[in-house]
Simulated assay, not measured.
Amino acid sequence: MTVPEIRIRGAVRDDERALAALDLATWSRLHAVLPAPEPGRPFYDERHLPEQYLVAETGAGELVGYLRLVPPTPLACHAHVRQIQGLAVAEAARGRGVARALLRAAMDRARGEGATRITLRVLGRNAPARALYAAEGFAVEGVLPGELLLDGEYVDDVLMGRSLLD
C-alpha cells in the first residue's frame, strides 16, 4: 500500500512555506484542538523546529504530508519515549499509504534515537486515525472521557502507544 513516488525525509527550514500551506489546507475539527491556523503565519517557531518533523515528498518535490516527533517531556526518566504530536496528509494524497509511511519512518527515527516506546494522543471521535494507529500496532492505553470541550461538544482524549522493541 506504499506509494513508490513518495519519499520520507527530515524537514528543513526551506519547507516552512509549504508546511504552513499544508497545515492550513488540512485543518479539520475532526482532529484539531487548536483554532485554524492563520493564513501567512509561520509554521516553525521556538517550540516547533524543523528537526522535529518528517515530511512526505512526491517525486516532483511537492510536500504532501508531515509528522512531528518529539520527546514528550524534557525529563531524563522520559528519554526512552517519543511522542507524535501532529500528523497531516494532503487531501489528494490520502488513502495512498502516506500516513502509514510517515508513521513507520517516525518509529524508525525514534528507534535510531534510542527510544523504546512511542505514544500519541488522538481525539476519540477521529475513527480513521485511530484505525490507522491500531493497524500499525498502537493500542489504546488510556482514555480521558470528555477531556476536551470543542465547539460546545465534550470529546474524549485517547492515549495510544506501542513498544518499539518488537
Score class of each variant (00 low, 15 high):
L87F: 09
E62D: 14
L69W: 00
A105K: 06
H80M: 00
A101H: 03
I118T: 09
E46M: 10
V55A: 10
P71S: 10
L49K: 12
Q83W: 03
P37W: 04
A127C: 05
R82C: 04
G124L: 11
A127K: 11
R82I: 00
R100N: 00
D45I: 08
V122F: 06
A56P: 01
L123I: 09
G97D: 04
M107W: 09
C77N: 10
P72M: 00
L67E: 03
V70L: 13
P71W: 03
R125I: 15
H48T: 14
R41F: 11
A79I: 03
P128W: 08
A60M: 07
E51R: 13
A105S: 13
V89Q: 04
A127L: 12
L67P: 03
L54K: 02
E38A: 13
L63W: 03
P42D: 12
R121M: 15
G95V: 03
A93Q: 02
G114M: 05
Y53R: 08
R121Y: 15
A105F: 05
A90S: 11
Q85D: 14
P39L: 06
R111E: 10
G97E: 02
A60E: 15
A127H: 11
R68P: 01
V64S: 00
H48N: 14
V98L: 03
A76E: 12
R41Q: 14
M107D: 12
L49S: 03
A79N: 08
Y44K: 03
P74E: 09
G114I: 07
L123A: 07
G114Y: 09
T119A: 12
L54C: 11
L87T: 13
M107L: 12
L69S: 00
A56I: 05
E113Q: 11
Y66R: 15
A115N: 01
A93E: 01
L87W: 07
Q83H: 12
G59K: 01
Y44M: 05
E113H: 06
R47S: 13
T73L: 14
P37H: 06
E62H: 13
L69I: 06
R94Q: 15
R111D: 08
E57G: 01
E57I: 04
L75P: 01
R41Y: 09
C77L: 10
A36D: 07
Y44F: 14
G86T: 02
D45S: 08
A115R: 01
T119G: 08
A76Y: 11
V70Q: 12
G124N: 10
T116E: 13
R111P: 09
Q52P: 04
A93C: 04
